[in-house]
Write a protein that binds this DNA or RNA. Structure first.
Lengths: 251, 251
DNA sequence: CTGTGTGAATGCATTCACAGCG
DNA sequence: CGCTGTGAATGCATTCACACAG
């Protein structure tokens, strides 16, 4: 997951649980694929398999949106595509700006998955004036100085931050001050934002670290200890050798 | 957040809840920053703020690792860095391969956050033979034909997939067959893998869609309806106009 | 007297299992 | 009769609040 928001209590939104909202895009993707193959209807079982969840969860999720299925039959693909799109707000066009056009920012600018889902890259912004010369993904790279003007001229409410960590908080503040209320953060920093602004973060190295955790366990516990924690010990035992603590973290 | 695994029941790992594991990298990042500023100790309150969580959660999380704090004082920064690194398996070196060297794959290859946390990019792999000519991030791009050999020669157990969606499942199967047991998937597809293989996915457009959902709500509900669902209606009312369903999804 | 560590309480999310619609 | 929609049951995660270690 690279999922995660900062701030804001888990107020469920218009009755739809966060966990469900996070899965709607998955369903939408699976449905879009079915739609392209002209499949007219689909059962919860089939769709769940395509989306990688179990069918009970899917039916529960859909029940929050309304009664869109037909008992004994399944769901109408086109209709569901429309309903979920509408629920997610994808029936409108969302202009976004990408700030920080390094390797990652450029990759994002070129990423087709945005445009195909109602997100339009309205501008690319970078602090390096030298970048203004060469266009990225067919667009000019504009200078950070004009950030506020770009935001308001284009009515942007969603910003993507792919700057180095050090610049992210300041960029974030300028975006918010200029009117952005949703931020997708790729910089490895915790952003602090005022109430009413949503932040989601994607941290590439965090995902790998989580994998490493599980990977380590696979290697270690070939002989199952039955999962039970040793009665005492284990709680007392550790607690600083108090001298040999190595500076293990690489750089 | 782009978090999420496919398959495998939520068996908590060695007594540490998944939700806690997912936060350990955040704590580690905050601690590393403190360590670099030579801060010797930190309270749960301070560290929580730096990591963007609340202090009760942080203390509970740490309690799963052991008793590493000192009451009335706080936590020893260096010691915690070491313990969390060890818990996450970052005290060892993890060779990874990146398959699919497009814009995103290249950005990942250049991403500094991997190397600095014990992940070593052992090889870049792409299906396009033309890519073999020009190195990316100072490394040669190798051809998919050699995938199996590269995996076993380098003892790779973690693979990153940044191919187009269409190629992902097949690449995944070859990685798994060659011995990879953890996969970080950037392709917008559900991967199916055998038991014992972990998959985490990062889907850029999903994150934006979740933001759009909340953004839409902000725009709509300026006059608060008190959050209560209208008594009846709302459940019955929708259900297909059954004719005017537009093909709304943009291409 | 400060701040950790943790039982107990609360609140979500997932899963079960089945009534009942089409 | 098949498959949706949903109450009820279960299982996690978060939060509270406080005993007690240093």
């Amino acid at each position: 997951m690279a999922t995660g928001r900062t701030h804001r209590p888990a107020t469920r939104s218009r009755g739809i649980p966060e966990a469900t909202v996070a899965r709607l895009p998955l369903y939408l993707r699976a449905l879009t694929a079915l739609s392209e193959r002209s499949v007219p209807t689909v059962s919860s079982e089939e769709l769940a398999a395509a989306a990688g969840v179990n069918s009970a969860k899917l039916r529960k999720d859909f029940s929050y949106l309304g009664s869109y299925g037909t008992r004994g039959v399944g769901y109408d693909v086109e209709y569901l595509v429309y309903q979920i799109s509408r629920e997610l707000g994808l029936t409108q066009d969302w202009p976004v700006v990408i700030v920080g056009i390094g390797n990652l920012g450029a990759a994002l600018a070129n990423y087709g998955g945005f445009a195909s889902r109602g997100f339009r890259v309205a501008a690319l912004i970078d602090a390096d004036p030298a970048m203004a010369g060469t266009p990225v993904a067919g667009m000019p790279v504009q200078h950070t100085d004009d950030l506020e003007k770009i935001i308001s001229d284009n009515g942007v409410s969603i910003g993507v931050i792919s700057t180095p960590a050090g610049a992210a908080q300041q960029v974030c503040e300028r975006l918010v001050a200029a009117g952005v209320t949703s931020i997708l953060n790729f910089a490895p920093t915790v952003l602090s934002v005022p109430d009413g602004v949503d932040v989601r973060k994607v941290d590439l190295s965090i995902e790998l670290q989580i994998l490493a955790f599980h990977e380590q366990r696979k290697a270690g516990e070939e002989a199952p200890d039955d999962g039970v924690v040793p009665p005492v010990a284990a709680k007392q035992q550790r607690k600083g050798p108090d001298g040999d603590v190595p500076a293990v973290m690489p750089a």
